[in-house]
Computed example of a mutant assay.
Amino acid sequence: MQVLSTTHELGINGASLAIPEIAARLTTRGDRIDVLVPEEVTGPLQGLIESAGGRVIRAANIKTGYDVALVNTILNAQMVSSMAPHMPVVWYIHEAEAGFDWLLKNSEGAAAFQAATHVILYHPHCRDTVFAPFLRHFPQHAVSIIPSGADIPPPDAPVPRAHEKDGRGILFVGTPYSRKRPVDLMSAFLAFCDGAPPLRIVGDSSYLDPDARPLLKRAPDRFQFLGVLDWPALRAEYERASILSLPSGSESMGRVTMEAALHGCALVLSDLPVHKGVWRDGKSALLHSVGDQPSLGLALRRLLDHPEDRIRLAEAARMVALNYPKEQSLDRVLMVLDRVTRAHQLSQPRSSAQNGVR
Results as ranks from 00 to 15, higher is better:
64 T>H: 15
106 N>C: 03
56 V>G: 02
50 E>M: 04
17 L>Q: 15
14 G>S: 07
39 E>R: 15
80 V>A: 05
130 V>Y: 03
74 I>Q: 00
53 G>L: 05
58 R>M: 03
76 N>L: 13
85 P>S: 03
111 A>T: 04
107 S>F: 11
113 F>R: 12
87 M>T: 03
56 V>Q: 06
131 F>W: 11
134 F>L: 14
32 R>T: 04
54 G>D: 04
115 A>N: 12
75 L>E: 11
46 Q>S: 04
57 I>T: 02
50 E>F: 03
54 G>M: 14
41 V>N: 07
130 V>D: 01
60 A>F: 09
75 L>R: 15
37 V>Y: 14
69 A>T: 10
30 G>W: 01
134 F>A: 11
21 E>V: 14
23 A>C: 14
49 I>R: 06
121 L>R: 06
132 A>G: 07
131 F>E: 08
129 T>G: 06
110 A>D: 06
95 E>C: 01
109 G>K: 02
67 D>V: 12
40 E>T: 08
30 G>I: 01
97 E>A: 15
89 V>W: 06
129 T>H: 12
136 R>Y: 14
20 P>R: 00
91 W>K: 01
49 I>G: 06
69 A>G: 12
83 M>A: 09
21 E>R: 15
97 E>S: 10
89 V>A: 02
83 M>E: 01
103 L>H: 05
46 Q>V: 14
106 N>A: 05
102 W>N: 00
29 R>H: 00
16 S>T: 05
93 I>V: 11
76 N>I: 00
66 Y>R: 09
101 D>I: 08
73 T>I: 07
110 A>Y: 12
121 L>D: 01
79 M>H: 11
120 I>E: 00
39 E>M: 05
129 T>A: 12
61 N>S: 13
88 P>M: 01
34 D>S: 12
65 G>R: 08
45 L>C: 10
106 N>W: 09
35 V>L: 10
86 H>E: 13
81 S>Y: 03
91 W>Y: 15
96 A>Y: 03
71 V>P: 12
94 H>D: 10
105 K>L: 15
49 I>H: 11
127 R>I: 06
120 I>S: 04
19 I>E: 04
135 L>T: 13
35 V>G: 11
78 Q>E: 15
112 A>S: 14
90 V>D: 01
17 L>E: 13
97 E>N: 13
14 G>P: 05
114 Q>L: 05
135 L>M: 06
121 L>F: 02
44 P>N: 14
28 T>W: 09
100 F>N: 14
80 V>E: 09
97 E>R: 07
